[in-house]
Amino acid sequence: MLDKNGIAKRIAKELEDGYFVNLGIGIPTLVANYIPKGIEVEFQSENGVLGMGPFPFEGEEDADVINAGKQTITTMPGASFFDSATSFNMIRGQHVDLTILGAMEVAENGDIANWKIPGKMVKGMGGAMDLVASAENIIVAMMHTNRAGESKLLRKCSLPLTGVNCVKKVVTNMAVLEVTDNGFKLLERAPGVSVEEVQKATEGKLIIEGNVPEMILD
């Protein structure tokens, strides 16, 4: 079973040289710590920065330079700042290659829910609806089950949707799954997790073909 950093590490292997990537809040933010050696990627944050760098050293933070999670950040050589409309033109216009975001639920047809629990939690969708409606490649980073132990990979989402038919891949603490026309295809198992355990934790249709390999993280 992976922890949050393990999920981020596995997703980082999906990065390709020359990618512009938008990272959501939470586990996706950790992906920036595991960029494979020898490739160049640029991180976009929808509040208006391309070429985001690491957190600043203590004392060097600038209130005017933050990411979409409102955290202080730095910029890399070649970075740029822009307004919110320009930022979403990058996203809507499919200039950003990959979107990595968290979710409360993902359905076997690629629907995603991550912005609202009616009567309980209403924080808003932020940029998530624009991102999932437009990005060509969307990877969800999340735990396989919720705190109550229930599957987050479902036949149909029970929560209000963020987007329809959009998720391409899901990386959880238990597995890597591809969203296909027929359901979740199990691509890899986390170290020490069996196919049966993944099956038990997956409510949506799970497709198992042949011998499912264990993830290679390093």
């Binding site: 690491p54 957190f55 600043p56 203590e58 060097e60 933070e61 955290q71 202080t72």
Partner: peptide, 12 residues
Amino acid sequence: EKRIEQLTVRKR
């Protein structure tokens, strides 16, 4: 005031 909502830094 330019308040910082999430001060996030790394150690030197």
